[in-house]
Nucleic acid binder design. Structure first.
Ligand SMILES: [Zn+2]
Ligand SMILES: [Zn+2]
Ligand SMILES: [Zn+2]
Ligand SMILES: [Zn+2]
Lengths: 153, 153
DNA sequence: CAAATAATGTTATAGTATAACATTGCTTAA
DNA sequence: TTAAGCAATGTTATACTATAACATTATTTG
């Protein structure tokens, strides 16, 4: 969480993780992709495509929508970020994903997002899906509510 | 599922359930709201706001965006439909909801959607949330994959 | 009935995302 | 090494999704 860590450190980690992922996946972390990823991590909350666009344009990058949407597409494909569907917004991921699944706790007060990695949820969902004869491919879970910090205030 | 029921029957049921819900909630199922709900049920798959708009306009209703978005808002508030976030689309609900939660199996082949009501999922999610000190308010789960029908083909 | 409230009409615009084609840059194998 | 092929980016235009703001009409209630 924001309050409990050196954020510059966690940006660094995210970027170096990205380098490694790109080596593993044999793809390229180009300057634009890297810059977008960095801006997403700097935000540390879900950030919108057009906000990224605005920030890019103030840093000598080309500021057209396809530029940022392509970068987002790339980062999503490589599980370096996720899209928060209920907000049309994007957030960094520091998890190791086996599958195409993502699970979020979204605080309605502070808009801080926590990604879950609890495998028990997937297990339960799998079981229920199977019962319906359904074969899951990707899962998205978005839980809206109040985080512990905000509950105290 | 589409293949296994008289669809005209299930539209009728949805509309009469809606009447009852509106009595209970002391709100009004106006002609526009009723028409939108009917069109959503006729589709029997997730349908987009502007597709509804097009269908309304061919039936002597006013065809401006706010008209349909207001109807959608009303229907969502009363749990008569849900929004499929990953598709910007809307689908009818014939469940009885205690809470603000919805869980879907979405077939990537036929785009048929099944709503889950399995309470075990909520229970698991609640437990995991609590462990993080998080108080859930509303939950949305969207599982993409292949339905049993499509798996056979 | 009059006042208050709810719902709809209307115009305009904000916000999100992609298509299509041109250009540039990297990779690789003759 | 260099030309061909592919990957990435540039560029223009447009499609798709949703809401703000204010006017008008319909319904409810005292
Ligand atoms: Zn993740
Ligand atoms: Zn919070
Ligand atoms: Zn439902
Ligand atoms: Zn199917």
């Amino acid at each position: 969480m924001w309050q409990r860590h050196q954020h510059s450190q966690c940006i660094k980690e995210a970027l170096s993780k990205a380098e490694q992922v790109c080596i593993d996946h044999q793809c390229r972390l180009t300057p634009i992709r890297k810059k977008v990823l960095e801006l997403i991590w700097k935000s540390h909350k879900p950030i919108k495509a057009y906000d990224l666009l605005a920030q890019l344009s103030s840093e000598d990058f080309i500021e057209k929508p396809p530029t940022v949407y392509r970068a987002l597409e790339f980062l999503i494909e490589n599980n370096l970020i996720h899209r928060i569907e209920s907000q049309n917004a994007y957030i960094g991921c520091n998890h190791d994903h086996e599958n195409l699944d993502s699970k979020f706790l979204i605080c309605e007060q502070c808009n801080q997002v926590e990604e879950l990695s609890e495998p028990k949820i997937n297990k339960t969902l799998s079981e229920v899906s199977k019962k319906q004869g359904f074969t899951p491919n990707m899962v998205n879970i978005e839980v809206h509510g109040t985080c512990s910090q905000c509950a105290q205030n």
